[in-house]
Amino acid sequence: MAARLNPTAKKLIRQSRNKKDALIPLLQDIQAIYGYVPSEAVDLIAKELSIFPVEIYGILTFYTQFYLTARGRYTIKVCQGTACHVMGGKEILDYLSDKLGIRKGETTPDGMFSLERVACLGCCGMAPVIVVGSDFYGRCSIQKIDELLDKYRSKRAKKVK
């Protein structure tokens, strides 16, 4: 199955052979390539690092950063930190979930958006905060969310044309 992995990923995995603390950074690098950690990568890592796949899945499911399935084009992270909660972060998450028709952790059927909740982004002064892709948006309101979703959808539409 490892045939489906691209050469960069294969090289990264081979380079980590026998490095005792390499596993988590390696998985982070693999995720940086694919947006998630494909099962083919897990199999190859297990072989190269001489560990059981179950150990790798143990790590993948323990840390919230890792995904086992493909992500949407834009990942929307909604901050659920204390300050954001007090300023209405939960309503923002509920609204987004409703509007996109997906729950947290899921991806829209068109592959546009994935929805995530994060514990705290450390931007409490601008609460409530959401992150779309790598862009931070502070002092969010439900109106602002509508505008943002439209903005990203039209950005995508333009690119497709």
Partner: peptide
């Protein structure tokens, strides 16, 4: 530099060490 992978409990000393060593925190 070691990047965390998103686990609050890794702020605890012994969990942090486990995470650096490449285990579950």
């Amino acid at each position: 530099i070691k990047q965390g992978a998103g686990a609050f409990v890794c702020g605890e000393e012994t969990a942090l060490i486990a995470s650096i060593e490449g285990h579950r925190g």
